[in-house]
Design a protein around this nucleic acid. Structure first.
Length: 203
DNA sequence: TACAAGGTACTGCCCCGGGA
DNA sequence: TCCCGGGGCAGTACCTTGTA
């Protein structure tokens, strides 16, 4: 199968964002973008597709954290967003939910010792609370997000796949058109430097 | 209610290196 | 010399949250 390689500026043009946004997304989403022998990033059609998907999710209002989970864990966006929110909520919920252990009385001799004891105590409490909350939240998220979201997601994913396919048909046509133009202009004058960056390799 | 602080998602700028 | 790409860091805009 033929694989086109795009430089960052080309990829940015196709995704319709600035080059540094692609670099920013790569860093924030921990994407594995391959480098050429010069250390320059090159993007394949799959990478472009991935970035278009990221852009679409961003336009739908998802945070990069949620998108990252979608990419790396294969979670659907709603579930990822729910988990992201749940993790934030966890920090708030775990402290007031103090177990009985906090009620025990301890005698202290100094402020430092008090603080040390308090840290140890709190560490245990937080661990316990986190474990409880993780169970509760998993159950809660599972119940709330589960059925309805799965059905909606199945539908949305199908719709999204169709949209993506359509978009890539258009993208492909645009790329072909661009290549034809370049070939035509290349026949008249020497091809500019940038076009050499787009290597066509066979895999 | 106003203000400060913090987080998120870019954005701008700088400087360096490679290729034509 | 110019263009393009690299990394890094500070700045910005907007939003949310906390506090007096």
């Amino acid at each position: 199968m033929d694989k086109l390689r795009y430089m960052i500026s080309d990829a940015a043009g196709l995704v319709n964002v600035e080059a540094h946004v692609l670099r920013y997304w790569e860093e924030e989403l921990q994407l594995n973008i391959p480098r050429n022998e010069m250390g320059h990033r090159y993007y394949t059609k799959e990478n472009i597709q991935q970035f278009l998907k990221i852009k679409e999710l961003k336009e739908q209002g998802y945070q990069l954290k949620a998108i990252k989970m979608v990419i790396h864990n294969g979670k659907n966006p709603e579930e990822a967003a729910a988990l992201t929110n749940a993790n934030a909520a966890l920090a708030e919920r775990s402290v007031p939910n103090q177990p009985t252990a906090v009620k025990q009385t301890v005698s202290y001799t100094s402020a430092e010792e008090k603080m040390a004891q308090f840290r140890i105590l709190m560490s245990g409490i937080v661990k316990e609370a986190l474990a409880d909350n993780n169970q509760d939240l998993s159950k809660e998220i599972g119940e709330n997000v589960g059925d309805r979201v799965l059905k909606e997601m199945n539908y949305l994913m199908r719709e999204q796949d169709e949209q993506e396919e359509e978009r890539f048909r258009k993208l492909d046509a645009a790329i072909r058109e661009l290549n034809v133009k370049k070939l035509k202009s290349g026949a008249k004058k020497k091809e500019p430097h940038r076009l050499f960056a787009k290597k066509e390799v066979t895999t």
